[in-house]
Design a protein around this nucleic acid. Structure first.
Lengths: 208, 208
DNA sequence: TGTCAATTGTCAGTGGCTGTCACTAGCCTC
DNA sequence: GAGGCTAGTGACAGCCACTGACAATTGACA
C-alpha cells in the first residue's frame, strides 16, 4: 500500500505530464513555456524541474514508454530466432500490445499527436534521435548476448542494429507525415519496409 | 576582388570559429560560454550570434563542410554505378580528399578532436544526428533522380539511404571511441563495415 | 567630403535551467 | 497526540543561450 505522500507525488507528476502534452500538442512545443505548464498545474516552475530533467523529457515521456516496451519485447523473444527476425517480431508484437501500455498513461490519440510534434520540432527530433542511438547500443548488447558473440570484437550486433534502426526511424518518419495515424498503418509500413530492405540494396533499381 | 568589408567579415568569422573550436576542444563544449568566445575574439556576444545561429552551429561547422564535400562526391559519381556502390565510392573518395578541404579552414587535428567532442557531448550529438537525418533526405532525392524513380511512391531511395546512413553513423562512432584517429583508420572501418552488412543480416551468427 | 548602407555594440528582455534556503505537510516515535 | 524528522515545495536569485531594437561606427561610393 502506498503512502499518501507517494500518491500525491504520483498525481503531481501525472498532472504535469498530461498538461504538458496537452499544451505541446495544442499550442506547439516551443510556444509552450515551462511556466505555462507549471501555472496550469498550479505548482512552481521549480517543481516541474524536480519531476522532469527538462522540457524535452516531458515531451518524450511517452516515446520512452514505448521504447521500454519494445526493448522488453526483444528480450522476451525465443532464443532460436535469428537476430533480425527477433527484432522484426518484437516490433510487430510491440505495436499490437502498445495500445494498452500507452492508454494507462494518456489517450493513445495524444501519443499519436505527440509523435507528429516530435517529428516536426527540430529540438525534439534531435533529442529523439539521440535517445534512439542509445537504444541501439542497448539493443546491440542484447543481440550480442543472445547470439553469444563479443560486442567488442564482433561488429555484427551493432551493424544489424544500425541497419534495423535506420529502417525503423524511416518508418516512424513516413508514418508521421502520412495521413493515416493508426497503429495499424504503422504496422503495415513496418512490414513493408523491412521486406524491401533486401531489394533496395540490390544492384540496380532500373526496370529496363 | 573582395572589398575591405568582406575581408573583415571573413576574418571575424574565421577568428570566431577558430577560437570557438579551440575552446570547445580544450575546455569542453558546455564549459565554454558564448561570452568566453566573444571576449577572446574581442567582439560583442551579439556579434557572435550574427555569424552563427547558435553555439551548436559553430561547433558543427567543420562537420558541415565534410557533409557538403561528401554530398558533392555523390553527385559526381558516374550514373552507371548502382546506388549503394555510388554511395560507397563517394565516402571512400571523400575521405581521400577531405584533408585538403578541412585544412583550408582549420588543422585536421582540430577536426578530429572536435569529432570526439561531438560524440561525447549529448547536446552536440543530438544536433549532429538531426543534421544527419536531413542529409539522408537530400541523399535520397539525389539517388531517386539518378535512378529515375519517384521519391514519393518508391521507398527504395530512402530505404537505401537509411541503411547506408545507419552504417556510416556506426562507423563514425566506433572511429571516435577507438584509438586511431587518422583518416586512414576511418577509411578502413568504412570498408570493413560496409562489407559486413550483408553477412550481419544473414540468418544466424552462431558458428554451431 | 558628405551621404548611404552595412556592421557592430549596447541594452533590455525572454526562457530554460540550477542552487539555496526557508517552510510546510506527511510520517514516525514515544 | 505532541514532538521531531524528513520529503516535497515555493520563493528567490542567478547563469546562460538567444533575440529585438536602437544607436554608434565604419567602409563604400558619389
Amino acid at each position: 500500500m502506498e503512502s499518501l505522500r507517494e500518491r500525491k507525488k504520483q498525481r503531481t507528476r501525472e498532472a504535469l505530464l498530461r498538461t504538458a502534452l496537452e499544451l505541446f500538442t495544442t499550442e506547439g512545443y516551443e510556444r509552450t513555456t515551462v511556466d505555462d505548464i507549471a501555472e496550469a498545474v498550479d505548482v512552481s516552475q521549480r517543481t516541474f524541474f524536480r519531476y522532469f530533467a527538462g522540457k524535452e523529457e516531458a515531451a518524450l515521456a511517452l516515446m520512452e514508454v514505448t521504447v521500454a516496451h519494445f526493448l522488453q519485447s526483444v528480450r522476451e523473444r525465443p532464443p532460436h530466432e535469428a537476430p533480425m527476425e527477433a527484432l522484426r517480431q518484437a516490433v510487430l508484437e510491440g505495436w499490437d500490445t502498445l495500445n494498452d501500455v500507452i492508454e494507462a498513461i494518456a489517450p493513445v490519440e495524444l501519443y499519436l499527436r505527440m509523435c507528429r510534434v516530435v517529428e516536426s520540432t527540430p529540438a525534439l527530433l534531435a533529442a529523439h534521435l539521440r535517445r534512439s542511438a542509445e537504444v541501439e547500443e542497448t539493443l546491440a548488447a542484447v543481440l550480442a548476448e543472445r547470439e553469444g558473440v563479443d560486442l567488442d570484437t564482433d561488429p555484427r550486433p551493432r551493424l544489424a542494429v544500425a541497419v534495423f534502426g535506420g529502417v525503423m526511424r524511416l518508418t516512424e518518419r513516413q508514418w508521421s507525415v502520412g495521413e493515416d495515424f493508426s497503429l495499424d498503418a504503422m504496422r503495415a509500413l513496418t512490414v513493408s519496409y523491412l521486406e524491401q530492405v533486401g531489394p533496395a540494396l540490390s544492384e540496380s533499381w532500373r526496370t529496363h
